[in-house]
Write a protein that binds this DNA or RNA. Sequence first.
DNA 1: TAGTGGTCTAGACCACTCA
DNA 2: GAGTGGTCTAGACCACTAT
Lengths: 230, 230
Amino acid sequence: MATVSHHTIRESLLDRIQRGEWALGALIPGEVQLAREYGCARTTVNRALRALADAGLVVRKRRGGTRVTPLPVRQARLSIPVVREQVEDAGDRYSHQLRRRRQSVPPAAIRKRLGLAARTKALYLETLHLANGAPFAFETRWINPAAVPDVAAEELEQLSINEWLVRRVPFTSGEVRFSAVNADSRVAAALGVAEGTALFLVDRTTWRGDVFITTTALHHAAGYTLHSTL
Amino acid sequence: MATVSHHTIRESLLDRIQRGEWALGALIPGEVQLAREYGCARTTVNRALRALADAGLVVRKRRGGTRVTPLPVRQARLSIPVVREQVEDAGDRYSHQLRRRRQSVPPAAIRKRLGLAARTKALYLETLHLANGAPFAFETRWINPAAVPDVAAEELEQLSINEWLVRRVPFTSGEVRFSAVNADSRVAAALGVAEGTALFLVDRTTWRGDVFITTTALHHAAGYTLHSTL
DNA sequence: TAGTGGTCTAGACCACTCA
DNA sequence: GAGTGGTCTAGACCACTAT
């Protein structure tokens, strides 16, 4: 029997969309109709269409049918790996240095983000990540002490705080922000670049339920590129 | 009857993973087992698990079972909208200026990327995108003339080339790169910032099948931030 | 070779929303 | 009210791979 997989149908529909069989914003045939066309169960067509909808290529509405997305907004999926993996995936040797570690009262902006009471101390860490011994990224991080078990200093020699948290403290949601900044003197010194150099900054905040866990700023060395396919 | 939806199961499993019921890398019960536990069809459990796998929280292998991802690599989904929408979504008024438009022989790097023969001319465009009249992003773009129908200059007064291409020329695949660069004199002048200012650069290349369509560099004004949830 | 996930089917009922 | 997608079920067979 002619096996018609949801992959086949997905590819076929994608092709038909891209060839312009249906205009942008136009209605495409319903699931029942397509199932007849392709000679398969409606479930199979449904799965193919759901995949296309996930990819943002069609928009589906009950009773309203399925339409080609009017203005195709392509989505890029970025994976945000642990720094060590980024370095090792590039074929480089990873190492890290804990540069600073203290308990202190965070600045107001951070305190608010971590949901701490005034004058409460939090854990502050500065880590330098290296690739083949050269600075790769400079990380500053605040940790909500109430949300995270104690970290022994010795542990941080083995595992960067970055990876330690990923392994030990699960989070339920998070936010990332990417931007470009000129290196200030402190970061420039840490990364060994000239002050003012454009750096790729990744800001991340994570929490579990409604408890903030940590917020971190990762300044990547000059030339760093984040890429993805569309 | 107690309706057990794949959403319910997904949430429940997510919760159990996040509460640490299974260690990182540990095997979780099979689909049949879970179906019994939740009192539903295997198909339903399957769908929930597939969703978790898509999100990168579990890894599934035939015969090998389903495991909690050893090192959870969280994925961020970024949508890359048309510049106009970015501006308008922020509540600003969008406008654009076509600053330059000429046919010329592209530099070797670009020529190679577009797959053009030596000395072939391509279309080069410079566009300034504005938000409330202030520079928002400066776009330079090379277009493979063989892949794209002629663009009349008048059309580009109505629609930026960015949006014109999205609407008129479907593509099948693409690549994006994000990085930080110091503004050179030309870009600095266009955006009205000091030379050396850190700018967020988005490089995009798209093609249809194996024909290159266009490659573009979008320099965003200082302070631009791209964000996403994890 | 056996066990696990991957997938398809045929049928059913539901939920939403457009006319 | 009716048509479309959303989802669940029960059963089946297949494909991969760990042992």
